[in-house]
């Protein structure tokens, strides 16, 4: 049972602190000497998921479980949920409001980016039920 589990609350609409949980996770992984490429991928995925929670979701929690062979990242919120998760996973699909587009978001690249950078991804969501994105990164797989 050699695992390290950490949870970070993330607030919907809080752009000031958005991304801090992922930065914390990134720095933890760095001091645990994981390979830079893995650290970068986990950080990118965590950031995208955090931003989705902040923009589209509701209040929630980022959980990371760190083990020698794999890293598991879960970002869950109690927001409005996603109507069609398959559609949401497609590149370019976005429901982001104009004000967010002006901030540089809303390209519809977040979920596809998470898929590309993780080894396994599950999006568990339905309207009114909130959203949970779980990603798994295997250590050693893509790392030298």
């Amino acid at each position: 049972m050699n695992r390290l589990r950490r949870t970070y609350p993330v607030r919907h609409g809080d752009f000031i602190h958005a991304g801090e949980a992922s930065i914390h996770v990134k720095n933890t992984l760095k001091s645990l000497s994981y390979c830079p490429d893995l650290v970068r991928r986990v950080a990118i995925c965590g950031y995208e998921a955090e931003m989705n929670l902040v923009m589209h979701g509701g209040d929630g929690v980022l959980t990371v479980v760190i083990a020698a062979d794999e890293i598991r990242l879960e970002v869950a919120d109690t927001g409005p949920g996603i109507e069609n998760t398959e559609l949401a996973m497609q590149e370019g699909y976005s429901t982001a409001r104009d004000e967010y587009r002006e901030m540089g978001f809303g390209a519809g690249m977040g979920l596809p980016n998470m898929k590309r950078n993780s080894d396994e991804i599950t999006v568990d969501s339905s309207p009114g039920q909130g959203t949970a994105v779980t990603m798994v990164f295997s250590v050693g797989g893509r790392c030298p």
Binding site: N2, R3, L4, T28, K30, S31, L32, S33, I66, A67, A68
Partner: peptide, 12 residues
């Protein structure tokens, strides 16, 4: 990374 590095056990 010149920060101190730890094992998972130590980090716990």
């Amino acid at each position: 990374f010149a920060g101190h590095s730890f094992t998972i056990e130590e980090m716990r």
